[in-house]
Design a binder for these strands. Structure first.
Lengths: 235, 235
DNA sequence: CGTGTGATTGATCGAGCTCAAGCTCGGTGG
DNA sequence: CCACCGAGCTTGAGCTCGATCAATCACACG
């Protein structure tokens, strides 16, 4: 039962349900809904818009020489991000079907920030979190094996998602994961299957998993080394 | 012939030689010199220090589960970066033998920024550049083949270095490059040798290269793609 | 009930990790 | 001066992993 006319207010309440940066701007925030694969509007305002993701997921991606797409930032609920008109090569799109965001005109935010130290501080905090997200992805991409990458990706998702139940709901397709990790879709599948067969994760649905063994996920995805070593010693 | 007592003034002049953010703080900047592999001092000041790299190179690295080291940010002359005491897992170290930096206490910078819109704007600019550096590295790491990674790394280095001569001086060892790209040292070597043999780059010294064919560097690493492309166009 | 999108599995082959061995070069002690 | 090191760089051989191509399966939708 979704309220139709009052949908925006519904999300506004969700937004205000907990403290967050830019909180005091909630009153002036516009609620925007996007369907899957729909581009997040830049807005006509000078400097673009700040967004706070309420529901769903958003990707920022770039096309690489050769035509492959690379996701360079993944936004989850309560993440802030900037979409500006001078984005160049980048596109910012909704991943999940029902993606809802709060939108703050950039110019207005900056104007207010000049008068308001607290707000300026919050803006710096937001920027710092964006940097942290990107560094996080960097570390994940730096993994050697695919299982390692997928594993640390799942962990990272789990940490960022405030999931009370032990279940982790990926709002992403395998293709999105593949583009985030810079590996092929097939490899993502195989890695997930592998983790599942080793009892480290469990698939509840296709897009919902349960992490059974966190320790195994963070640590080594190398096992063959032992066999190798033994064989060599035996020889 | 290096002036001993006046060395700091020498670098101060280098620093002031061109416009840059925080320029007005140059007067209060301390000049710091670091040897290769020496950690950049956090400083005792609350919130750490901002640094502007004048000469040399600096890496920010983290140790990954399994013991491998991953460089998550590479600083070149005229880059700004923050070293704070709550850095956690990260270490920030000089890469080049003679690395010289200008140091600005973070607390002082922020204090001034509250009074000075221009300065606050410059700080945001600095943060934005740091994010851009990290995203750049992300895109490089997202490459499939090692030649692709090394190639785009060299291009990125070249763009960031204001080299008047066509020569690009890497201040990094092969090991550093390997840790930046998350590949093995041997693979870095082979990639460089490969690029050299194909006439795309030329080695002047071990650590100095000349880029002969920029187009080839950006593009090819793939040759099989043709089959793919045909299929896509046909569709 | 076809159609399309997403997910999975199999087979093949080349790229890159690993181990191993040399190589270059600058410094250090005899 | 030379011998000897050690750090960095390079090359080779073998083997694993993942990209690629191909085929199915699951499922929602018109």
């Amino acid at each position: 039962m979704k309220p139709r006319d009052h949908a925006a207010d519904h999300y506004r309440r969700m937004l205000s349900a907990e403290r967050h940066p830019l909180e005091r701007l909630d009153g002036s925030a516009a609620i925007v809904k996007c369907a899957r694969n729909q581009e997040i509007p830049t807005g006509e305002a000078r400097g673009g818009h700040w967004y706070c993701l309420i529901t769903g997921a958003v990707r920022r991606s770039a096309i690489r020489h050769g035509g492959r797409r690379q996701i360079v930032e993944l936004m989850l609920p309560r993440d802030f991000f900037l979409v500006s008109e001078t984005q160049g090569e980048e596109t910012v799109e909704a991943i999940a079907e029902h993606t809802v965001l709060a939108s703050y005109p950039c110019a207005r935010v900056e104007l207010l920030a000049e008068q308001d130290r607290q707000l300026a501080q919050e803006l710096r905090e937001i920027a710092s979190q964006s940097l942290a997200r990107t560094r996080d992805q960097l570390m994940i991409l730096g993994g050697i094996t695919a299982v390692e990458k997928v594993g640390s990706f799942l962990l990272s998702l789990d940490e960022r998602t405030s999931s009370e139940s032990g279940r982790l709901d990926l709002a992403l397709t395998r293709y999105d994961i593949a583009e985030y990790l810079a590996v092929s879709v097939e490899t993502v599948c195989r890695a997930i299957t592998d983790l599942q067969q080793r009892g480290i994760i469990a698939l509840v649905g296709t897009r919902t998993i349960k992490i059974l063994d966190r320790g195994a996920l963070e640590h080594r995805a190398r096992k063959k080394m032992n066999a190798n070593r033994k064989r060599l010693i035996a020889a």
